[in-house]
Amino acid sequence: MALDPATVRRIVTLARIRLEDAEVPRIQSELNGIIGWIEQLNEVDIDGVEPLTGAAQMALKMRDDAVTDGGYPDKVLSNAPERAGPFYAVPKVVE
């Protein structure tokens, strides 16, 4: 399944990575090289195989319902590129 330029555009948009039009052919060719190589997996007989989502083989642990965190707004805001008082600030979002 080779990627066409429109798919490359769609993917970079989904990933929110700016890509100049001039770069599309290069990225397209790189991605196609990798995807083409990945497609060797089509040789594998996967009939009846349950997918393995992770390497951890155990039960999901749970936390108690207790307030043990938060309450440090200055710490969560200290690395913000832009803050406005107690808020993070971003370019205005129009809904």
């Binding site: 798919t7 769609r10 991605l31 594998v44 997918p51 393995l52």
Partner: peptide
Amino acid sequence: ILIGTYVLSAGYYDAYYLRAQKV
């Protein structure tokens, strides 16, 4: 990131991601 976005995107999930998990 782009490869990952592509293999999870609509219509490709089963062909790539799900297959990879089975492998």
